[in-house]
Amino acid sequence: MAKRNALGRGLGALIDDAEKMKQAGISEIELTKIEANPFQPRSKFDEESLEELAASIREIGLIQPITLRKNGSDSFQIIAGERRFRAAQKAGMETIPAYIRHAKDDGMLEMALVENIQREDLDAIEIALSYQRLMDELEFTQEDLSGRVGKKRSTIANYLRLLKLPAIIQKALREKEISMGHARALINIEDADVQEMIYQQIVKYGFSVRRVEEIVRSLDEEGLQQNQSRKKELPKEYRDYKGQLGKLLGSRIGISVNEKGKGKIVIPFKSGNDLERIVKIIENNK
């Protein structure tokens, strides 16, 4: 069975020992030896999304290994991970970490991954990766997984949602800078920039899970109130300022302006603790 790092993420940043990576069942394959799967149903990839992933790869390494099959003596074909492969090309990588699959090994793969999931020393991201790999390569549904690993479907869904977090937050979860509770609270924020900003505050100020949950609830409530009370759309420059302030303070800022250009900024807070958090951010950005 693969060692702990077999399903590791952020290999370039998290695993420095190439020999350990080899033992874990992950190989470094030259990009020039890899070709796309001609039966790939997805023919178009969003360029902006690819550029964002490429930027993440340049900063902290590739998060999730791709999966390949041998396609000759010295060439490989993609089974899963073409988007990651394309982003790695854009990032200027020469090699990419990959699982190498062989024909008719589905049963062995399932047994190995399910056994791996049952271990107690895996972190949340490793478990999520195991689930995702079973779904990608063996075409399992979440219901299938529930039966295979003896977990509730909702539990599996919560783990899989972790893989949608920005790479820097996934890395922090793996390195125990934040807890599973922190990560699950951050998942409920749609804006990745706001997720990263609150993550930085967790690390800097040592926010508890309950504190982060309060912040997230506050964001949700403020967003609903502002949507209900909005009477007219702000000029673009004011919307830009509003967005910048919101990301800085982790709060849905309110801005109103009259016909003469005069107005006010409203910074709502949920509690005394939340107000203290906002004040500290303002003081640190003087």
Rank of each mutant, 00 (worst) to 15 (best):
Q64V: 09
Q64P: 03
Q64Y: 15
Q64W: 09
P65Y: 07
I66M: 02
I66P: 03
I66V: 12
I66H: 04
T67C: 00
T67E: 00
L68R: 06
L68I: 14
R69K: 10
R69V: 05
K70E: 10
K70G: 02
K70S: 10
N71A: 13
G72Y: 01
G72M: 05
G72W: 01
G72P: 05
S73C: 01
D74T: 12
D74N: 14
D74V: 06
D74F: 05
S75T: 15
S75N: 15
S75Y: 07
S75E: 11
S75H: 13
S75A: 14
F76W: 09
F76T: 01
F76V: 01
F76H: 01
Q77K: 06
I78R: 00
I79N: 04
I79V: 14
I79C: 08
A80D: 15
A80G: 03
A80E: 14
A80M: 00
G81F: 00
G81V: 01
E82T: 15
E82R: 15
E82P: 14
E82F: 01
E82S: 05
R83V: 03
R83I: 08
R83W: 02
R83Y: 06
R83F: 12
R84H: 12
R84D: 13
F85I: 11
F85N: 05
A87H: 09
A87F: 14
A87L: 08
A88F: 07
A88K: 09
Q89L: 13
Q89F: 11
Q89K: 15
K90I: 05
K90C: 02
A91M: 11
A91N: 03
A91Q: 08
G92H: 12
G92W: 14
M93W: 03
M93P: 03
M93I: 02
M93Y: 15
E94K: 15
E94C: 05
E94W: 02
E94M: 10
T95K: 15
T95Q: 14
T95M: 10
T95S: 14
I96M: 09
I96V: 15
I96Q: 08
I96G: 07
I96H: 13
I96L: 06
P97E: 06
P97W: 08
P97I: 07
P97K: 12
P97G: 04
A98G: 04
A98M: 06
A98P: 07
A98R: 12
Y99N: 10
Y99R: 03
Y99Q: 03
Y99T: 13
